[in-house]
Design a protein around this nucleic acid. Structure first.
Lengths: 136, 136
DNA sequence: CTAGAGTCCGTACCATGGTACAGAGTCAAG
DNA sequence: CTTGACTCTGTACCATGGTACGGACTCTAG
């Protein structure tokens, strides 16, 4: 019991490392209200599995393109079980993702074209600007 | 001639609008060295078609995920015709784009799952956190 | 010729997402 | 019990990509 506590309740440095972020970032998330600040008996604060889950959630949601404040909202929704709003946020974000995906795919093919033309060693000037002229 | 100049050489406000940005943004790009500051005979500076092309290039390259400083480099490469470097930058960016695309696609499906589960109205708590638990 | 819109230039400020550092306290191994 | 690593709190600073503002000047339509 005491042993498992020692293993599962980590000081901030270990906690941050497990979450793939720096200590300062953990503190930053705390300041933003995304992570709780565990109570301590005067000494070091310790972070449990739920904290870790939450930290990882933040990173994942971030990679889904949510801003930190949206992530804050998601975490609150999770707590108060507001499915309707959560679903709506997910759909909104999916929409934004679809637009972003299309944009990045367009960018990718423009760049592809640029790379090919630059490689062809043709006679004209390197068509960087022109590669973006007929954009979309 | 004089007429075509009047049409093609625009004051900054019109120029910015045609480029889809604000006046302040044009000035910002100038401060960053991405756009020239046209000479003026004491009065208003005027922007020609090449400036517009450059401004639009900046926006397009930005949507391809280049940072402003990378865009600066691209513009220089265009000027000095350094194909090798340009090609290399394009390939590097394509690589980054591919990674970003994969990430966003993963995010999209996680969100899809979340939206579906939230809608199902099942009995458990709304599985927001869990939607990101098995991430990738 | 005058009013009002637009321009010029410098500087300040903003949001986002961190990152760094100082000074004091705490913990754990030798 | 000391030493060195780590932690705590607060505050400052950073890069990126803008956005706003003040005061002077200029341009153009009426």
């Amino acid at each position: 019991m005491v042993q498992s506590q020692a293993e599962e309740f980590l000081p901030i440095g270990t906690f941050a490392r497990k979450g793939g972020v720096g200590v300062e970032t953990v503190r930053y998330y705390q300041r933003q209200g995304l992570l709780r600040v565990p109570k301590s008996a005067g000494g070091m604060r310790r972070y449990g599995p739920e904290d870790l889950r939450r930290l990882r959630f933040i990173r994942h949601a971030q990679s889904a393109g949510f801003t930190l404040s949206e992530i804050g909202e998601l975490l609150e929704l999770d707590a108060c079980d507001d499915r309707k709003r959560a679903r709506q946020m997910a759909l909104t974000r999916i929409d934004a993702l679809d637009r972003k995906l299309a944009e990045l795919q367009a960018a990718r093919s423009s760049l592809m074209r640029l790379a090919v033309e630059c490689n062809s060693g043709g006679s004209g000037p390197c068509p960087i600007l022109s590669a973006f002229d007929a954009w979309r």
